[in-house]
């Protein structure tokens, strides 16, 4: 492995205004198994303190540092430098309004998440201890509950790029599916009612960029297909 790596990073400064640009950096490899976030931290701490990005846990759990890395979305903290073609091109998540450098406005993304009511809705009284599930019912949620809402899938989706104001996007739909699959939830019918819409759900054309981008190895395309099957089963 090289001792120095090349990066090109998207820069935008709202105070300066003007067009965004790509800025080159050289970073020494300072530890084995170095991740992209380590390189960004090196730049911020040693070369240019104005470089702005989000990060928190640094180990792929919080979902803060989603960004476009060499053309594919992913989390900087769990993307090894070793596998990346240089110069590593780092850009903000696509089709988002850029606040500064790699920091984007996620308001709309979380509004869409909120719109699928991602919480347990149940009328029946809470049992003395807890709402129980069989191991099989619990296993239904595997592949959905692990979502950390980093936004890598939704901002990778061309359908969402062109119709993001109406199409809910892979992340929100994966979450909708997660609650529709949940045996304890009692609002399944209303949830399906809300989703049956040519724009909110049926903009998905199996492009599968969401599946390719998901840093947690989940499959939002499969979740969306499951929603479509459920809607079809309900109506036929």
């Amino acid at each position: 492995m090289d001792t120095v790596i090349q990066l090109e990073i998207y820069r935008f400064d709202p105070e300066q205004g003007g067009e965004p640009r790509m800025q080159s950096f050289e970073v020494p490899v300072n530890k084995p198994g170095m991740k992209l976030l380590d390189a960004l931290n090196y730049i911020k701490w040693n070369l240019d303190g104005t470089l702005t990005y989000r990060r928190s846990c640094g180990e792929g759990v919080c979902g803060s540092d989603g960004m476009n890395i060499n053309g594919v979305n992913g989390l900087a903290c769990i993307t090894p430098i070793a596998g990346l073609k240089q110069p590593i091109k780092v850009r903000p998540l696509p089709s988002m309004q850029v606040i500064r450098d790699l920091v984007v406005d996620t308001t709309h993304f979380f509004d869409q998440y909120r719109s699928v009511k991602p919480w347990l809705q149940a009328e029946s009284p809470v049992p003395e201890h807890e709402r129980l599930q069989t191991p099989d019912q619990r296993a239904e949620l595997d592949g959905s509950y692990e979502c950390i809402l980093c936004g890598c899938c939704t901002t990778a989706c061309p359908s969402w790029w062109w119709n993001g104001d109406r199409f809910l996007g892979p992340a929100a739909l994966l979450q909708a599916d997660r609650w529709i699959k949940d045996s304890r939830d009692e609002a399944t019918g209303e949830r399906l009612d809300d989703l049956e819409d040519a724009f909110k759900l049926y903009r998905c054309h199996q492009i599968m960029n969401c599946m390719e981008a998901c840093p947690k190895g989940l499959n939002p395309t499969a979740a969306i297909n499951h929603l479509k099957r459920t809607l079809l089963a309900r109506k036929s």
Binding site: F12, P20, N68, Q97, T155, P158, W161
Partner: peptide, 13 residues
């Protein structure tokens, strides 16, 4: 506002 839209189809692999 004057916030730019981050590049999408021009950069996505």
């Amino acid at each position: 506002s004057a916030r730019p839209l981050s590049p999408r189809v021009s950069v996505y692999r």
